[in-house]
């Protein structure tokens, strides 16, 4: 069991390091094709991190949205523009300062979070345990996440689906407009 935990930590460290490297690469590369391709690699690595964190459903979403749909959409957007990134018009000093400040505040904020997987957090002692106890009697769905998404907050999910559907229509209309003008 000890080796399993060590392996998890090791895999996480390697994957997160590679993620950081790929992010730096995405920033550095000026060719937008390469950026799209590297973003696909980022999504696959992120999905692997999610798997190691036991969030299999999130991993699935990350892989299909990040590596599948996003690649195709970014490519079709790229088709309407140039393939080389233009040199920046302004220096990046102020944005860099803002981003570093925000990052520092966020990292400071993580010190207030409970440790990963602790049992006595509000997340695990409040409604979470209640859902775990009642979910199967009330809904008959064996997967707790699915029962919450589709039954307890079904209207919320319906709203989300509507938003995504509308966004999809919007993207299609944008691409359509370019086609008729071209």
């Amino acid at each position: 069991m000890e080796t399993v935990i060590n392996m998890e930590a090791l895999i996480n460290m390697v994957l997160l390091t590679l993620l950081a490297l790929i992010t730096l690469g995405i920033i550095r590369v000026r060719n937008l094709f390469a950026v799209v391709v590297l973003t696909g690699a980022y999504s696959f690595l992120m999905a692997s991190v999610m798997i190691v964190l036991d969030a299999v459903d999130v991993a699935m979403t990350e892989a299909s949205v990040g590596a599948g749909i996003s690649t195709v959409l970014a490519l079709s957007a790229l088709y309407l523009t140039k393939t080389e990134e233009a040199p920046p018009r302004y220096t990046a000093a102020l944005p860099l300062f803002v981003v570093i400040g925000t990052g520092a505040v966020l990292i400071y904020g993580t010190y207030g979070l409970p440790h990963f997987g602790m049992a006595d957090t509000p997340m695990n002692t409040g409604v979470g345990a209640d859902y775990l106890a009642r979910n199967y009697q009330e809904t008959g769905v064996p997967n707790v996440v699915t029962s919450v998404l589709a039954s307890y907050r079904g209207f919320d999910t319906l709203g989300e689906t509507t938003v995504i559907f509308t966004a999809g229509i919007g993207v299609l209309l944008l691409l359509k407009r370019f086609r008729q003008e071209g």
Binding site: I69, L73, Y79, T81, L175, R179
Partner: peptide, 14 residues
């Protein structure tokens, strides 16, 4: 590189 004004197709078709 030259044909920036040509068409793009719907995502489903892609």
């Amino acid at each position: 590189s030259g044909d920036t004004n040509a068409t793009a197709s719907a995502a489903a078709e892609m």
